[in-house]
Design a protein around this nucleic acid. Structure first.
Length: 433
RNA sequence: GCGGCUAUAGUUCAGGGGCAGAACGCCUGUCUGUGGCACAGGAUGUCGUGGGUUCGAUCCCCACUAGCCGCCCCA
């Protein structure tokens, strides 16, 4: 019989790793709360149409990376429906915003999510077929200020804070504006025209991109192409006055808040819905998948999927990549090592097992983390087992059971003391430091 | 989807056409209530899967699968 394994591009996260995952998520929730974001949980699968319309039919994500299937009809009256595992979460959030008429509240909606996403790409370090994103969206009617450049700047400032509090040092914020829904096609035409005479001398990928998606030419990393790319018209020059002003105000607010960023004229993003502000936080430790997070403004997305005008801005961070980055940082290793439980109870002889469970229950109910050994273990084995997981060992033998005075040894100091049962919890708590 | 590298013990890895190796970890004993050290002993495994060449394949060849690296793209 062949042994079953996790399918390609998916993986199990074992306790050694989930500790870090939980810490990241807890930090994110805490930061989001300070900025008045609330959590939203949308289904992991949606009607395929949502992604086709929202993310864009021609994007790689929709055209070749989605897990899509026909959900069969279970009755004559039912129709089959094409469903898709979500490849990203913004479309789902906007769908929920429309469906629950959140715009009718008149309030700006600040929503965050944490959860798995699915794309059928070739797996690589930092790139999995099931991966987790932590993201947030600020969306609402224009009257609620959803279009304000201050919203963009606040989101970016929040991200800088979050990365700092996670302990990720050395991130770089790259910022650009791709202009309004009318600026963008205008620029694409300008770019196409400028590429026409030179593209023949560029790399094969660029020749293809010049046809399919000229914006992506700007992303090319081939050294010989760089002079050509530098000479191309910049998108900044194709922006209308409103977009320019908007972007200038985003920058001004970031400057005032002291958030460092790099203006990157070449930053274009792969999802069709982005307008005006786009950004990326990168980190050098990630290899080819160097984007920790990406995002931008999507002023027309709601209308694209049949909703009211609801400008917004959001981002998605690759949680798997945050984990990889943090695992590479020395400080994380140190803090994660220091996660021992409060005590290990060693019953001396199997006769003490029931009493040991009783003691464990008592201490655990007082909030202590306790591991319970077994009376059949030899004392040496108990000590070895205890030292691996706990800061202290509690010996429970006949003497202790009768006297109610327990023997407690702290591993760090080697100090051994006799502690009355009633004082045990306080004693162990005090030794936490 | 394309190209490259890799796959041997729980882990990290060495090896090489003829009994499968090291280190660390694990288990036992020296040692019936005081561990970490030391000493002595022990268990590891379809050598990724399936074919082929060969008297014989873990080793050579082919295919597949998976991981990693690069491309594409993205988080």
């Amino acid at each position: 019989m062949t042994t079953l394994k996790a399918v390609r591009g998916t993986r199990d996260l074992l306790p050694a790793e989930t500790g870090l995952w939980n810490r990241i998520e807890a930090t994110a929730r805490q930061v989001f709360a300070r900025y008045n974001f609330g959590e939203i949980r949308t289904p992991v699968f949606e009607d395929t149409t949502l992604f086709a319309r929202g993310v864009g039919e021609e994007t790689d994500i929709v055209s070749k990376e989605m897990y899509t299937w026909e959900d069969r009809a279970r009755a004559q009256s039912e129709k089959t429906q094409s469903l898709t595992l979500r490849p990203e979460n913004t479309a789902g959030v906007v769908r929920a915003y429309i469906e629950h008429k959140l715009g009718e509240t008149g309030q700006l909606q600040k929503l965050y999510y944490i959860g798995p996403q699915f794309r059928r790409e070739r797996p690589q370090r930092g790139r999995y077929r099931q991966f987790s994103q932590i993201g947030a969206e600020v969306i609402g009617p224009v009257s609620a200020g959803s279009e304000s450049p201050l919203r963009d700047a606040e989101v970016l400032e929040m991200l800088a804070t979050l990365l700092d509090e996670l302990g990720i040092s050395g991130w770089v914020l790259k910022l650009n504006s791709v202009g309004s829904a009318t600026d963008r096609p205008k620029y694409i035409e300008t770019l196409r025209a400028a590429l026409l005479p030179v593209v023949g001398q560029m790399c094969p990928d660029c020749q293809r991109r010049a046809e399919t998606n000229p914006l992506r030419v700007l992303d090319c990393k081939v050294a010989e192409d760089q002079p050509f790319i530098d000479a191309l018209p910049k998108i900044a020059d194709s922006l209308d006055q409103a977009s320019r002003d908007h972007f200038a105000q985003v920058c001004a607010a970031l400057d005032a808040a002291g958030v460092p960023y790099e203006r990157d004229h070449r930053l274009v993003r792969g999802l069709d819905y982005y307008t005006r502000t786009t950004f990326e936080f990168t980190h050098g430790g990630l290899g080819a998948q160097n984007a920790l997070l990406g995002g931008g403004r999507y002023d027309g997305l709601s209308e694209l999927i049949g909703g009211p005008k609801a400008p917004g801005i959001g981002f998605a961070m690759g949680e798997d990549r945050l984990v990889l980055t943090l695992q590479a940082l020395e400080s994380t290793k140190i803090t994660l090592l220091d996660t021992k439980i409060d005590a290990y109870i060693a019953p001396l002889g199997e006769a003490q097992n029931p009493a040991a469970l009783q003691l464990a229950r008592e201490l655990r109910r007082q909030g202590l983390s306790i591991e319970l050994g077994d009376g059949s273990f030899r004392l040496k084995k108990s000590f070895e087992a205890a030292d691996k997981v706990a800061r202290a060992i509690i010996l429970l033998g006949e003497d202790e059971a009768q006297s109610g005075i327990l023997t407690v040894k702290q591993f760090s100091s080697g100090m051994q003391t006799k502690v009355a049962r009633a004082d045990l919890a306080a004693h162990l708590t005090a030794s936490r430091i």
